[in-house]
Design a protein around this nucleic acid. Structure first.
Lengths: 345, 345
DNA sequence: AGCGCTTTCTCAACCGGTAAAGTCCCATTC
DNA sequence: GAATGGGACTTTACCGGTTGAGAAAGCGCT
């Protein structure tokens, strides 16, 4: 990994060319007072002529800012490929980071232990100025880690999950309740939910919200299944839910992401059930995918890109100000399309 | 962006605790000769007790390795979220980088100019030890950039596109030819292709390969449309292809990715055409998605994860050895599923 | 005992910046 | 005319490692 060292221009060369000390160059490039306009110009001109830009590594080492933020994502690699959510989220984060000439250090990790290792190494090694933490679980070790290291972070998840860290979250409970109410309002009395990974905190939140909503509405039937968010798991879950005989079968299914909803749609077709006549399907994380199916998928949609951007903004305020303010982003709203309708039985 | 500086353990503390000089600690942690086993143990023990890990920033500055690789992706953010290809590719890259305790610096850029800027800033600032370049276009400025900077890179794309850079690529021409031959062998004489972004080099390669294959087989009809890879564009293209009256209509459509194929499937359904009886559909970049639709999508499939891994391996050899060997990865192979069949007309 | 060779470590310079303290010079002010 | 003040820079000491040039110690050999 030892790169062939090309002749690099350093601050010293710029200083020499501009006829000043390197301290002066530093002042100029950090827009600090104490230099005349003339000198400043001379320095910038010299830098431009030499094609110099400050070495961020040296700058970081010297103790000022770190213009890299970290994000470790912990999911099986293959499953990730399919989750449009992450890429949208990342693109939202990036859109804000880029405005501060800041980059994102991304790492896919296998499990929580590895994430803890990675975050610790990043922070110890001054590789990042702060991190975004996602996918909180029950007894998540990261709050303690952050406490121990003093690592500036923003946690993506409900405060109940994130152990006092500065958090940004979507109100999943309210969204689930709205989804169930909507289906019930259409006339559905037997509703199922194909949930995400059971060990994820937000899955637990949705699960209990679903249960509560079902109870409050006194539904005739309410099923919940946990999956791993993959399309295959969504298909399996749907198949098993729909094999029941007609009167006991759910007439509506809510999915925890859009991939599983697409899979569900396909299973329904394969089983000869019409959507939405025989069964209504409602997706989550409304990506473009939901508009590409036939019928199009109704979904609980939210602005994942904007969410990522908001998380990044909050991270900046934590990194610079020390304390950030936890807050929710707008609750997902129902976007009805063709996959939901009153039950025809 | 000035983080609250927590009390950090440095090499000096470890050296003091182990009763050696910091040079010795450095030797131990880089597994270099010149230390007795006993001392080595003592140093590692001290480091463990203090919870010390070398500061990668300082290490980089001191001129040895840079354990970060760069990847700038230039596509509209929204479209990206939907491209399973990237996440799979990234996860493949990561799987190799992680083995070398190396991280990936990811940046989404708006256009080529911005990518050039970013790559230059990264390299100048010693932020990365090397970069992966993707999405080559006609007259791509990056080969010249790399030449000018001496930046170690591996280019993802056919050598004809990458201007002499060390490259890793999939043989798109052969794959397109195979796809067309397969459809022709099924009896299709009117075949269309819904291509990707016209300015991308690999799209151009596929386009001419398609034209050539169509000519060689003397097809009765061969259409090609350029899109932006989005599902919406795929839907529009499909709709326009299928509106022709029955005898002139294509009986098979090849797509440049899987999202557009899914969209095509939905358009066919919406237009009352049966797949594969009335029209066969063939996807590209076989992700999980192709197995989730109904009917399942036949696809030209290749191991994108493995591709990413291979690219990363090649990058390491460029970064360390100076010269890497350009080579293709296995050509995508046809995975027939339910969306292709002999035409029924 | 004296010499050369290793092996094992220490020392000090350096990587390319930042930032606090110091120097110089000139315009005010008393 | 000396003291004061402040703007414009320079000096210098780091940041936390790496690295090459020695130095000290142990050992075989004449």
């Amino acid at each position: 990994m030892t790169a062939t060292p090309p002749a690099r221009v350093t601050i010293r060369d710029v200083a020499a060319r501009a006829g000043v000390s390197k301290g002066a160059v530093s002042l100029a490039f950090n827009h600090k007072p104490g230099l005349s306009e003339a000198t400043r110009d001379r320095i910038f001109r010299a830098a431009r002529e030499l094609g110099w830009a400050p070495n961020l590594t040296a700058r970081t080492l010297a103790g000022s800012r770190v213009d890299v933020m970290g994000l470790a994502v912990c999911r099986p690699a293959r499953a990730l490929g399919l989750e449009p959510w992450y890429m949208e989220f990342v693109s939202g984060v990036e859109s804000v980071l880029a405005g501060h000439s800041c980059s994102l250090l991304l790492r896919l990790v296998r499990d929580m232990d590895e994430e803890v290792e990675v975050q610790e190494a990043w922070w110890r090694g001054r590789q990042v100025g702060g991190s975004i933490l996602v996918d909180f679980r029950a007894d998540d070790p990261r709050a303690a880690l952050v406490e121990r290291l003093g690592l500036p972070v923003v946690a993506v998840g409900h405060p109940a999950l994130t152990g006092g860290l500065t958090s940004v979250w979507t109100d999943d409970a309210t969204a689930v309740t709205e989804a169930v109410r909507y289906l019930a309002a259409l006339g559905h009395r037997r509703i199922a939910r194909v949930g995400g990974a059971a060990d994820l905190g937000h899955t637990a939140i949705r699960t209990s919200a679903f249960e509560e909503a079902a109870g409050a509405l006194a539904l005739a039937g309410a099923w919940q299944v946990a999956t791993d968010f993959s399309g295959d798991a969504g298909a399996r879950a749907t198949r098993s839910l729909l094999t029941a005989a007609a009167p006991d079968r759910p007439t509506a299914i809510v999915y925890d992401n859009d991939i599983m909803a697409v899979a569900g749609l396909s299973v329904a077709a394969e089983m000869g059930l019409r959507v939405p006549e025989d069964v209504s399907l409602l997706a989550w994380d409304d990506s473009q995918l939901c508009r590409l199916t036939h019928p199009t998928l109704s979904a609980m949609s939210h602005d994942v890109h904007g969410f990522g951007a908001e998380v990044a903004r909050t991270l900046f305020s934590v990194v610079t100000g020390g304390e950030g303010v936890s807050h929710p982003v707008p609750t997902p709203v129902l976007t009805p399309r063709r996959s939901t309708a009153p039950p025809k039985m």
